[in-house]
Write a protein that binds this DNA or RNA. Sequence first.
DNA 1: TGACATTATATGTTGCAACAATTATTGTGT
DNA 2: ACACAATAATTGTTGCAACATATAATGTCA
Lengths: 151, 151
Amino acid sequence: MVSAKHSGKARQANLEENTFLELLQTTDRLSRGVAALLKTEELSLTQYNVLRVLRGSPDGLPCGEIARRLITREPDITRLLDRMEKRGLISRCRDAKDRRTVVTRITAEGLDAVNRLDEPVHALHRMQLGHLGHEHLLSLTGLLRQARGEQ
Amino acid sequence: MVSAKHSGKARQANLEENTFLELLQTTDRLSRGVAALLKTEELSLTQYNVLRVLRGSPDGLPCGEIARRLITREPDITRLLDRMEKRGLISRCRDAKDRRTVVTRITAEGLDAVNRLDEPVHALHRMQLGHLGHEHLLSLTGLLRQARGEQ
DNA sequence: TGACATTATATGTTGCAACAATTATTGTGT
DNA sequence: ACACAATAATTGTTGCAACATATAATGTCA
């Protein structure tokens, strides 16, 4: 059923897999730091990103558009927004013209929360990655885009 | 995970943050591919990693050691192993000497599942990242380690 | 117009993860 | 030996994410 490829080359250096594991570990490490910071406002990383997206669209956005920008499945968006609405971070209302769509807006409270985080989040990112320096950061982002097959 | 539709100025000021977002997006993209592949064996990425760790320790490992190697919280390990034991992928038994610890071993069924995945997982990683080439992959892993502050 | 596809959102179910608290066992100091 | 700390695993609770499915409103075409 399976060729004898296991035995001999099993321990051979697997550069691609190793890169994937490094990616997982690095993203995990950095995300935990960010998550810990966002917890001061009781926000998850996803919720924070929702607020940032909505801050950039004061007229509000439909669920589908939020999902598209977050690369999150639409079914998850509904319940994510449910929780955020319950906490007063966003408001929702049916669109008058197309009654299928629900327009979501950021509230003053939500805006305050995300604004308060701008500075500490930026500082954290500098602390986490600043030591790489301009050049290495550019190299890294370039390689990451390349890894995703862009460019 | 979030759009990068900033002006050039905002982007320049947030090189670190931009790198973080690139990391999130790249890891997300690659992980989804791997998750889709592992789904052919009805395994999550975490479960797959558990099986690989246990395959490397035929005498079994205590929960705490598994948690340490996976960078997962211990409370999550218990229920993760619960589900895997129910499916016959692993077996657990109390240690005779120290009755606090539970030793977990991979079963023949679990071993089969993880062995079946070796080849397709390797092929997927090559498909996902192979186009970068040896040199770029080494650069990338180096930068990632550096980003985590190692070396 | 009416049948039917399309779009937008919501719901059901399951598994996963964070965090706090709990139970059981073992180690330690007096 | 006994109180008590330390260790190992578990349980409770909540929120998050994947996936399939359902509901509601709108668009399309005979």
